[in-house]
Simulated scan of single mutants.
Amino acid sequence: MAMDTTKIKLPHEVATVITKKAKDTSTIAALSPAEPQLFLDKDYMVFNGSSEAEVVAEGAQKSSYEETLTPVVGKRFKVVTTTRVTSELKWADEDNQLQIVKSIQDDQAKALGRVLDYVVYHAFNPKPKTTLDGFTALSTSAVQVTSEGDEVADIDALAEAVSDEYDINGIALSKTWAAQLRKLRVPSTGMRLYPEIPINLQVGNLDGIPAATSGTVNGRLITPSTKVLAFLGDFSLIKWGMVRDITSEIIEYGDPDNTGKDLKGYNQIAYRTEALYSYAILDPKGIAVLKAGE
């Protein structure tokens, strides 16, 4: 019996164009290295290291100090993204090497990167655009700094706001604020004040410290606006990692995203990518957040 191909219309020749909008990336992943995680709500025992040397006379009694360990409990969260497409796309992709499926999976992997910033910075769930119960946003727990409209003074104010117990080793910029900094010029020469900020705003360092720019810093998807312009401080205080690595699968049956539409019944397949994160912020006082004024 001959194969029935009446339901499938494949093109004789295809020129594929996949639009690539600028994608936000995770600034936390860029500024704070990931750590392997176990399937547990990991407790971080914070050692403050408060010892100081003591000068004692010969034969004099020596003193000691008591060290306390402060536990900080990490939080786990599972993330998933599912994309439905016509089942014919899979066959067309295989026959014509359109790379559409690969692009879908790459797009999903980037979404799983961005969600780390949304959860840690804003306690926000990107797809349904809702706040996350039981999560504390760094944008509210970090040291608060309000912009005075002078970008150079704002950087100084951010640095001064960070507790002097910590070293400043990173700054996460919103694209809005990065663009403002890039426009600043030295009045006498017209030279850019921050030439390290390129025209695409993807800065690698700023004023001598590592930097990263993304729309996740201010929360592009969040309404009303968070007014967040930047985070600056000790990014090693943000501990995070994958409890389970990113996995991707092709689903051909059922209703995987509870839309009420069975995949087979609608001639669809679904591509699903998911991962499991864990993170903890050891001390919010080690990071300052800059917000626009009223």
Rank of each mutant, 00 (worst) to 15 (best):
E88V: 15
I246A: 13
K261Q: 12
L69E: 15
D207C: 14
S163Q: 08
T130R: 05
A230Y: 03
D133Y: 08
E52Y: 13
S188T: 10
M242I: 06
E249D: 13
K239F: 00
N200Q: 12
V85E: 14
S225G: 14
D43A: 08
D107P: 00
N218I: 05
V120S: 02
W177P: 02
R244N: 10
E52K: 15
F231I: 03
E249K: 12
T146A: 06
V17S: 02
G215Q: 08
K291C: 03
V228Y: 10
K183Q: 03
S32F: 05
L232S: 12
Y65N: 14
S248W: 07
F135K: 03
I287R: 02
K90I: 13
G49Y: 01
G204R: 13
L276H: 11
Y166N: 04
N125Q: 08
A179C: 08
A288S: 13
W240K: 03
L31W: 00
D207L: 15
A57Y: 11
P187Y: 04
S174K: 01
V73N: 13
F235H: 09
E58K: 11
P198V: 11
P195S: 13
D164R: 03
L282H: 12
G190C: 04
E88D: 14
P71N: 14
K291S: 09
D156K: 10
G204Y: 08
I209Q: 15
T176M: 06
I251C: 11
A270N: 12
A111G: 14
A53F: 15
G241D: 03
Q37E: 01
V162A: 09
A178Y: 03
D255P: 08
V217N: 11
L40Q: 04
S236D: 14
F47P: 01
T223M: 09
I155L: 12
S63T: 15
T213C: 15
D93M: 01
N200C: 12
G260M: 04
K75L: 09
I269R: 10
Y65H: 15
Q97D: 11
H122Q: 07
G293K: 09
I171L: 06
P126K: 05
L112M: 09
S141C: 05
N267S: 14
A157H: 06
K21G: 04
R76E: 07
N258A: 12
A2I: 02
T86E: 15
N48M: 06
A53E: 12
I28L: 08
E148Y: 07
K291L: 06
E274V: 07
S32I: 00
S225Y: 10
K75V: 10
A172V: 00
P33Y: 02
V80E: 15
I18T: 05
W91I: 10
K127H: 09
E13D: 02
K261G: 12
D150I: 06
T70I: 15
D257E: 11
E252I: 04
I269G: 13
S32C: 00
K239Q: 08
N267P: 09
N48I: 05
Y118T: 04
Q61Y: 13
V143Q: 10
A2V: 04
I155E: 03
D43I: 05
L10V: 01
T247Q: 10
I222A: 11
K20P: 07
T81W: 11
Q144L: 01
V80R: 15
I197N: 09
T130Y: 00
A137M: 05
P126S: 05
I251A: 07
I287N: 07
A178N: 00
A123M: 03
L282V: 13
Q37K: 07
L138G: 02
I100K: 03
S141W: 00
K183I: 02
V289M: 02
G215M: 10
A2S: 00
